[in-house]
């Protein structure tokens, strides 16, 4: 079952006090199956936040349809089963962490009788118990993010939207949050993650999509991306001379090159032998031959660049 379905979604914002229009989303189509961690990537202003807002009816689509939980029911009702950590979320500064969780938990449909236990559970989960009674105006950015995550989990949602969840959190905190997300996934929950941090999405997402200027430029399984790569990196113990390089270049596309290291793109993996033969012929010793993964980052940058040159 697809927990999220997006069909031909377009969102055009009309700037206030001017005729200027901004196409935040342009004919986006996306299906997200249940039970995965999905990462939506894209540079700032790509439309990631807008997409979540439309799914939660915080903003309305200009055209196209969206569906949550494969259900036609009223979206307000559906929100009983969703959690949301907005980007730059703001809670009233005079509240304590616990009060925030109580208030928004109740609005989220939490049972009043169980609320105390639930507050304590989620605070524990994000490791914020000792700050529960502190006013949030004293919280750091990282603590606010943790509280925001706890808040998003109050109603035990099936589908969790996180907009830049690790923003402002230190590396240790980040890995803790990744653990929390993995645990949530193992409980059968679906997580929709917005991020401009590619490495992060790469580390925990099952599927990802790349949004650029409102257009979906790629979507697929993260594992597909990193496994079927035919780039090989060859390290040598001495500098590779230009003449050897030229020889190899005749046959292969050389991706990256430093003094004693060579990354080449192959059409078939066995073709690597030619490059090795060539190096050996010139008495260059080979230290290692490693198949290189094309990281999401490289893909991301090349896709965004392509899109830009196309426009030009």
């Amino acid at each position: 079952m697809n927990i999220i379905e997006i069909k031909n979604l377009t969102k055009v914002y009309q700037k206030r006090y001017s005729k200027k229009k901004i196409t935040a989303l342009n004919n986006v189509n996306l299906e997200i199956p249940k039970g995965i961690i999905f990462g939506l990537l894209g540079p700032n202003g790509a439309g990631k936040t807008t997409l979540i807002k439309i799914l939660l009816e915080i903003a309305y689509p200009t055209s196209g349809q969206t569906k949550l939980f494969d259900s036609e029911e009223n979206r307000t009702e559906m929100k009983k089963f969703t959690g949301y950590l907005p980007e730059n979320h703001k809670y009233p500064a005079y509240l304590t962490g616990e009060a925030v969780l109580r208030i928004f938990g109740q609005l989220g449909g939490c049972d009043y009788k169980n609320i105390k236990a639930r507050v304590s559970y989620v605070l524990d989960l994000v490791d914020m118990k000792k700050w529960a009674d502190t006013k949030i105006k004293k919280y750091s950015k990282g603590m606010m993010q943790r509280l925001g995550l706890a808040q998003a989990l109050m109603n035990d949602p099936k589908l969790i939207f996180l907009d830049e969840p690790t923003d402002g959190i230190d590396p240790i905190g980040r890995s803790e949050i990744r653990e929390i997300l993995k645990n949530l996934k193992s409980e059968g929950k679906t997580i929709f993650l917005n991020s401009h941090l590619l490495s992060e999405v790469e580390m925990i997402s099952d599927r990802a999509a790349i949004l650029n200027k409102g257009e979906l430029v790629w979507d697929g399984a993260v594992s597909d991306l990193t496994e079927n790569s035919k780039i090989v990196r060859i390290s040598t113990d001495q500098n590779i001379s230009d003449s050897v390089l030229q020889e190899i270049q005749k046959k292969y596309d050389i991706k990256k090159c430093s003094q004693n290291c060579l990354s080449i793109a192959l059409s078939e993996i066995k073709d690597v032998n030619y490059a090795i033969d060539e190096l050996r012929k010139n008495n260059i010793n080979i230290i290692s031959v490693i198949p290189e993964k094309q990281s999401l980052e490289e893909m991301f940058i090349s896709l965004i660049k392509n899109a830009e040159t196309e426009i030009k």
Binding site: I58, T76, E77, K79, K80, T82, H89, F104, G108, F161
Partner: peptide, 14 residues
Amino acid sequence: EKGNIDLFLSKPVK
């Protein structure tokens, strides 16, 4: 305010 209204509207509240 941004970041506040989003949160309220994300709840099952009309």
